[in-house]
Each structure stands twice: as structure tokens, then as C-alpha cells.
């Protein structure tokens, strides 16, 4: 397996989706290839960091405005209609 082929499989590797044959080939490649080991470590860390910075909280005042907007909307409609 080349580095190019190994890197192409990293997402499926992290998801545990590779067949056992391919997984063994990938792991054998990683064992002998320090750049691909570094790639995997930083790829995995990137995934975690991006998830963390994307975890933004909804502003409290928006929640209150949304509730006020919707409550009028649902009550304006005839029940069961």
C-alpha cells in the first residue's frame, strides 16, 4: 500500500468500516511509515478540534425571541384545524 492509498482510507479506518484484509494492510503500512503515522495522528486531532470549535451555543435571547414568535403562531390557528 502506498501513502496515497493509505491516506485515502483514513476516514473509513476511523469509522471501523474497512474489511479486515484492508485494515491489516493499512496497519502494516502505518507501522513502517512515520509520515503516515503523523498524518493519521493529526487527522484524528483535526476532527476533534473542528468538532469542538463548531460546538457553538445558541444565544439565550434568541431562544426567548423564538419562543415568543412561535407561541403566537401556533395559538393563532384553530385547534385541530
Amino acid at each position: 500500500m502506498t501513502c496515497k492509498e493509505a491516506i485515502a482510507k483514513l476516514a473509513e479506518y476511523l469509522d471501523g468500516e474497512l474489511t479486515s484484509v484492508v485494515q491489516k494492510q493499512l496497519e502494516a503500512h502505518l507501522k513502517t511509515c512515520p509520515p503516515c503515522r503523523a498524518y493519521l495522528a493529526t487527522y484524528r486531532k483535526t476532527k476533534e478540534l473542528a468538532a469542538k470549535v463548531n460546538r457553538v451555543d445558541m444565544p439565550e435571547d434568541l431562544k426567548a425571541r423564538l419562543r415568543a414568535l412561535l407561541i403566537d403562531r401556533i395559538r393563532a390557528r384553530p385547534a385541530g384545524g
Partner: peptide, 22 residues
């Protein structure tokens, strides 16, 4: 990432070995 014809990564050795995950 870019690769050479033989499937190895392009770029200097220090760059392809950079591991900042720790």
C-alpha cells in the same frame, strides 16, 4: 496533500513528519 508518482507524499521531510497532535 499532494503525492509523487510513486505514491509518497510531496513536501520536505520535516513537514510530512510534523505531528502536533500531542
Amino acid at each position: 496533500p499532494s503525492f509523487k508518482a510513486d505514491g509518497h507524499r510531496e513536501g520536505d521531510r520535516a513537514y510530512v513528519l510534523a505531528d502536533w497532535s500531542q
